[in-house]
Design a protein around this nucleic acid. Structure first.
Lengths: 231, 231
DNA sequence: AGAATAGTGTCTATGAGACAGTATGGC
DNA sequence: GCCATACTGTCTCATAGACACTATTCT
């Protein structure tokens, strides 16, 4: 293999959650050059004997403290333009993670500060490397996938109300949805959600049925993003 | 960079076209070990100063002889499981290309034989490396994208009839579509196609209007794959 | 004329969106 | 009682699918 050009390979994570009606992303503040002091996506180098997905799962667990099987993790895209990392030729494989609202914005093991930031307040070019481009791709992917997959449930705890699921859609899409039509649509789409048999307690108003994620991987028919010029 | 594990990085291409009512893929027969004599996706190593997309475009041109701006080229996914290449730790970035029916199945510069093969006749585990998995991902991506993007036009020459576009859909989806409803749907979707102002000559039957690809990047409403259990 | 293909019109069933109205809890 | 939220029912409009019909060429 010495005859082939040597690359470094990293994974970077776009970790999204919905907190208090805001779409938030997990960022770490870099403690070393390059981009010292700047916000960046969590990530790190892939071990020479480590699978890419394993490396992404490892970084996710290290940064959040959450055991793996919660939420959703998928490959997003690969970024390898020469010069994107001043340390050398680094190709990064970006992953997208969708998580329920987690208790702690735990400081990572890397001693760098980690925190949830509302994506609406991240300014252009505020992030290290080309991470603003990766973030934009992650947001676009998440918004699109809510339409035709049940991934909105990845933003929710194991049991959730239809209203909670609706706030996920409203937050990610930044659009208001009619609660009555939404309810009919979700419960009428086969395999999207299934009743947990329990109801909420202690809230205002009539208690709501709790649901779990159903068995479908694709929604038929899809949830349609309202209003014009989607895209 | 010597402190980080060294990887080799390659690009591999899933190049699809529609020939004679069959969905075909461009494959090369390997002339050297490993997998000597087996069919494989065209591809090769990325130069240490070369962008990933540039490497993919270069390989595409080398194998097909086509200048770049024809058809469509997009990143598909990255495959890097340890052991997927017996030569060492190789991470490959797969790209998906959609091309119109090209004249020559040109033999590549690598002296390896290249040819268009119908995807329906590729047996399981017939391909080298993990290329069967990559091919499956490319097919799935192409089928899905025909629904909500105008990419079916990438399978057509610059000017084409609605009937030609329909055969693309029918071939990729392996489903029959109603010519009348299809015509109404395509011409009624804003930005999908625009009239070229010319008509076909010499064929049987009434001459057909020629169209070019329109300006839209997404279709609203989408073309829906008929029949049940899509996905 | 007849065959073949292009393109239009009409009907019907389904689903989205708007929104009235009912149910069930906390205070 | 009042308020808040959950949930159901009804109406209307748009669109997909089925398919009859007209248009324009070649042989």
């Amino acid at each position: 293999m010495t005859e082939y050009p040597p690359f470094a390979v990293t994974v970077d994570l776009v970790v999204l959650t919905v907190r208090e009606d805001e779409l938030c992303i997990l960022l770490v503040r870099r403690g070393v050059p390059p981009y010292h002091g700047r916000w960046a996506l969590p990530g790190g180098f892939v071990g020479i004997d480590e699978d890419l997905a394993d490396a992404a799962a490892r970084e996710l667990t290290e940064e959040t403290g959450v055991p793996e099987p919660i939420g959703h993790l998928e490959q997003l895209g690969t970024y390898g333009t020469p010069g994107r990392d001043p340390r050398g030729r680094v190709v990064t494989v970006a992953y997208l993670a969708l998580l329920p609202d987690l208790p702690p914005p735990v400081a990572g093991t890397d001693a760098a500060a980690a925190d949830w930031l509302p994506v609406s307040r991240i300014a252009d070019a505020e992030l290290a490397f080309d991470h603003d481009v990766i973030l934009a791709a992650g947001l676009e992917r998440a918004r699109a996938k809510l339409e035709y997959t049940p991934l909105a449930t990845a933003f929710c705890p194991a049991e959730f109300t239809i209203a909670r699921l609706r706030t996920v859609y409203e937050t990610v899409w930044n659009r208001q949805l009619d609660p009555r039509n939404f309810h009919r649509k979700v419960t009428g789409t086969p395999g999207f959600v299934e009743p947990a048999g329990r109801v909420t307690e202690g809230d205002r108003g009539r208690p709501a049925q709790l649901y779990r994620r159903g068995s479908a991987d694709l929604l038929h028919p899809p949830m349609l993003r309202p209003s014009v010029t989607r895209g």
